[in-house]
Design a protein around this nucleic acid. Structure first.
Lengths: 337, 337
DNA sequence: AGACAAAATGGGAGGGCTTCCAAGAACGCG
DNA sequence: CGCGTTCTTGGAAGCCCTCCCATTTTGTCT
């Protein structure tokens, strides 16, 4: 262990001495607590400025038992998730709200078992005041771990097995339903779907929305294939579907990346979009404007998702008990359907 | 100020008592320091397990003056940067290395003045052991702030004015040169470029690489237009360039998003790619495979950039003085050129 | 067995802040 | 002018660890 060197930074004691008051008074000024005379308050403020004093957050955290930070945990085995701009947007939303609440953001990418353990320790050691968790596959041990610690935990998208107290989710079922209804309204008859992994809630929910739309219209859901939310898997799924049912005229893909892959596969198979086959995606990622033809897709308020998660976790930290939230999505019609 | 509730979590004292040793011994076991008998070491380990003890990182940080965390600061006025998958990849790289070094990652999106101030306080208060800074425009005050704190600071991409001690950068000049040389080798004669913002080092460097290639080939650089690294700006720039010089037959775009925009503008202008006009991008983002035709582009090791930044900051934290790094990029030839 | 070196141990002093509490100052009012 | 209130104030006790150091134990060698 390294020796502890003197820090060199001014401490609250020095500020107090410089201002001619006791440490208690100085502390009260910093936390603008009452019971400080105007004169001393100003003296302390001057001393703070003169000395360039910045409170030591660790000491404060130790005394108050508050970390001054919240964690965003993204639990994913595949580290390439972040290649998806989706998380960037969530992070931006989270960050903007936490900032207002004066909380720092600890980002935890829980890919390996080792890192999951580290996240667990972070929570158990109260290294953060609250947690936001995203992208949980199946019933992730991290979900239990988080609830066990009795820390405020907000889920982004409901985790598989559990029924969490606080979560924010996109209304995936409704979104997928609208997408499929749009295909039906366009006169499509043989509508298939490319799903996300069915061990994720998103994957399941979007698949269910697709089925609901067809069943409500008195039709039987057709074939489906499962992808992993990335472009290549979408192309592969599309190819398999075409082989199974050559008469396909509509495709609902559970996200835009896979829809883009489907577009590519269709092009390679010589089908024209939207003339022969109409395609609808989900997410409204930037890629949706770039494909040719541009993707009709379900826009989801990703940034808001992050913002609301953060707002919710802040609410819980401050002692509230906010209700779960289901954010609305809406269809953006472009050229592919 | 809220009352301090009892924490309920076991402390090191309790572990020591439970194991029948002094706190010092328990501490030594936890830090696996020498001078502990086998018997007591095991007793302490058992007590830790029995009590479910997790050390309080704040207390430790206070005592050791080490935060156990590093910050990644992304300084951008426009919060939409994160829509770009670029940062996601950097984050993934950073995260994987920090994890091995047992450091937590604090993510700071310094968009507003308020948030920049908060970042400043975080650094001054030694809330982190080291900092990585990215995407600095011009001479960002944050850059000075960081160096002033005498904290290990690694820059991702050199900041504008300064000449930092530690940085990791992509060799943008060479990359842009190769891209342009590829266009030349393809027999293109009227090669223009769509630049990034010229107050960023990336923007300038890629522009310079383009110029170098042309000058080395004994040609005079042609027209250029400036974009903001997003798709629409690329399309707009392309349109302006076509208006200026209708005989364009080659375009080097400073990133893939703008290249995708250029592709769209060219299509709308009735030019065929790569027959009439060849296009080369930069970054090799996922979008490069999706465009039609797929983009020939300069692949940069984004993940490695993050990894190397983290490795470097860890190195400095541990007392080393690593040399700056320039990561190589390479051309990926697809269909657009 | 005695002398000496080496290893093991626990006491205690920080690290920098918050907050309880008791004591002192200021003030209003009859 | 005295008494009870209400503010202000500073002392001191934590919060939970790390690490120096003096002390005790163990082990080695002659």
């Amino acid at each position: 262990m390294r020796q502890v060197p003197p820090s060199g930074r001014p401490t609250l004691d020095e500020v107090a001495a410089h201002a001619g008051v006791s440490r208690s008074v100085a502390s009260r000024v910093l936390n603008n607590a009452p019971h400080v005379s105007r004169a001393k308050r100003e003296a302390v403020e001057r001393a703070v400025r003169d000395l360039g004093y910045v409170p030591n957050p660790k000491a404060r955290a130790l005394a108050t038992r508050q970390a001054g930070a919240a964690a965003l945990v993204i639990s994913q085995h595949d580290p390439s998730v972040l290649a998806d701009p989706f998380f960037g947007q969530v992070i931006a939303g989270v960050s903007s709200v936490l900032e207002e609440a004066e909380l720092h953001l600890m980002l935890c990418l829980a890919a390996s078992d080792r890192s999951r353990k580290r996240v667990g320790d972070l929570l158990r050691s109260r290294g953060v005041d609250g947690v936001m968790m995203m992208a949980l596959h199946g019933d992730d041990p991290l979900a239990h771990m988080a609830t066990e610690t009795a820390l405020p935990v907000v889920f982004g998208g409901r985790p598989g097995g559990a029924d969490p107290r606080w979560y924010v989710d996109i209304d995936n079922v409704a979104g997928a339903r609208h997408a499929t209804e749009h295909l039906l309204a366009g006169g499509r008859r043989n509508i298939v779907t490319i799903c996300g992994p069915l061990d994720t809630e998103v994957g399941r929910a979007r698949h269910q929305g697709y089925r609901e739309a067809l069943l409500l219209a008195g039709r039987i859901p057709q074939a489906f294939e499962v992808g992993d939310f990335n472009e290549p898997s979408g192309a592969a799924a599309m190819t398999r579907l075409l082989a199974q049912r050559p008469d396909i005229d509509g495709v609902f893909a559970a996200n835009d990346n896979m829809a883009a892959g489907a577009l590519r596969a269709l092009r390679e198979a010589g089908r024209s979009v939207p003339h022969d086959v109409a395609v609808v995606g989900f997410d409204d990622l930037p890629v949706a404007r770039i494909t040719d033809p541009a993707l009709t897709t379900v826009h989801q308020p990703i940034r808001d998702l992050g913002r609301e998660m953060a707002r919710m976790v802040v609410g819980v930290i401050e002692g509230g008990d906010p209700s779960p939230l289901l954010l609305p999505s809406h269809l953006v019609v472009r050229s592919s359907a």
